[in-house]
């Protein structure tokens, strides 16, 4: 192989290896990019870190929305978890409280985090939670059972076409996860 060719080869290899490294970085860059895009499109509001402030709405007595509650535990979370009721009829603008019950079924303390999800996704921005056990990681002592209220209201601006909103919580075990 002539020296000239060797030089040309190592030049092209260097360039291509650079592309490879950039694309590896690009994969990771998709992570923050995804959050930004979700924000812009109002999709998939992930961990809501804090409560909404309690705004006064004018209550719309003429309209009734069905709110459904679903509870689930992630595969390995050793808990029992339920809502006091499956459905509620609510008037937009009015604040309601619904209780959830969760129990640690092991003999050791555990930490668990509930992740909320609202369906249909586009109704999410009209669902206001001013109190929720999902805002922080919960600690349960051995066999401890907790009653956990959620206080919420549906914004009266919710478009007419939404008649049912489903609120679902999943508990994830975080006992072995170090907080940062």
């Amino acid at each position: 192989m002539s020296q000239d060719l060797e030089r040309k080869n190592s030049k092209i290899v260097t360039k291509l290896v650079l592309v490879v490294l950039v694309m590896f970085g690009f994969g990771y860059a998709l992570v923050p990019l995804y959050d930004v895009l979700c924000d812009i499109t109002g999709q998939n509001i992930k961990l809501q870190a804090a409560a909404d402030s309690e705004t006064e709405f004018t209550v719309d007595e003429s309209r009734e929305i069905t709110v459904e509650f679903i509870t689930a535990i992630n595969e390995k979370t050793p808990m029992e978890f339920r809502a006091e009721t499956r459905t509620m009829k609510v008037h937009p603008g009015k604040y309601y409280t619904v209780n959830f019950y969760a129990k640690n079924i092991t003999n050791n303390p555990i930490k668990a985090q509930a992740i909320p999800s609202i369906s249909p996704g586009l109704a999410e921005e009209f669902f206001k939670k001013i109190q929720c056990f999902c805002f922080e990681t919960q600690t349960f002592q051995a066999k401890e059972e907790k009653k956990m209220p959620v206080r919420f209201a549906v914004n009266p601006k919710l478009p007419e076409r939404y008649k049912i909103i489903t609120l679902s919580y999943t508990f994830f075990d975080r006992t072995n996860i170090t907080e940062n």
Partner: peptide, 20 residues
Amino acid sequence: FDTSFFNAAGGGDPVLYQHI
């Protein structure tokens, strides 16, 4: 290693994996 790229409990999202 306790990262949460796709783990909802840590603020991640499994759908992100599908995009990547």
